[in-house]
Design a binder for these strands. Structure first.
Length: 214
DNA sequence: CGGGCGATACCCT
DNA sequence: GGGTATCGCCCGA
């Protein structure tokens, strides 16, 4: 149907409320670990890696130099999805955080695929290993069916096909942020978090981590 | 497993 | 016109 059908999100749990996102992105980001990114069509995955980006103070943020047509969603209300296009071929998705006008958000960098694996494989036909379906920000958007058409949708009311669901699994404890990936500036902000030991996290594994699965 | 590199289009200066 | 919040292929070890 057209854009706003009543979508029932497929993974059981409670969609995160608006207030969850109405804090600074580095506060929200680690709390998103172990939550579920779920689509109305059945695809779902557990969030295992995130990065925070903060308007005005963070030179790596798209919003660093103020509002433009591309980044407008980030300056809007929290709990919406900011989807951007990069490297001429890839889409990446964020949760907008903080108050209107701040311009910050959390980039979702990796998911553990949980449900709708057949649809994910169909969306990424060249991938032989399920481990690689959602291991990376542009890979997971492809697997989940997210593109520019989803820029600006509301994740809280879940009426536009996607939501972030709390299914009762707490975030990992004693998390420490590390440097973000793929930047030429802003490398000093320790605003990347991941689920320790998860084999679905992007980037190079530290030595020995490959055998330490969970 | 890890490094190197090309692809590719849009955005903002 | 330069840079990009990346990926996948190829290669050597």
């Amino acid at each position: 149907m057209i854009g706003k059908q009543k979508a029932s999100i497929a993974w059981p749990g409670t969609p995160l409320p608006r207030a969850f996102f109405d804090r600074s992105a580095p506060d929200v980001a680690p709390q998103l670990l172990n939550k579920i990114l779920a689509a109305a069509d059945g695809r779902a995955g557990r969030i295992v890696e995130v990065e925070a980006y903060v308007g005005a103070v963070d030179p790596a943020a798209h919003t660093f130099r103020g509002k433009t047509p591309r980044n407008a969603t980030m300056f809007g209300p929290p709990g919406h999805m900011y989807v951007y296009f990069t490297y001429g071929m890839h889409w990446c998705c964020n949760c907008v955080c903080g108050s209107v006008g701040v311009g910050s958000g959390v980039l979702i960098r990796a998911l553990e695929p949980l449900q709708g694996l057949a649809q994910m494989r169909a969306a990424r036909p060249r991938i032989a290993n399920d481990r690689d379906l959602c291991r990376g920000p542009a890979r997971l958007t492809q697997a989940m069916g997210i593109s520019g058409a989803q820029d600006g949708i509301d994740l809280v009311n879940a009426r536009e096909g996607f939501a972030i669901v709390d299914d009762g699994m707490a975030p990992p404890e004693n998390l420490v942020g590390g440097p973000r990936i793929g930047l030429s500036v802003g490398k000093d902000f320790p605003w990347r978090w991941s689920v320790p030991g998860s084999r679905y996290v992007s980037g190079r594994l530290v030595s020995g981590a490959a055998s330490r699965q969970r």
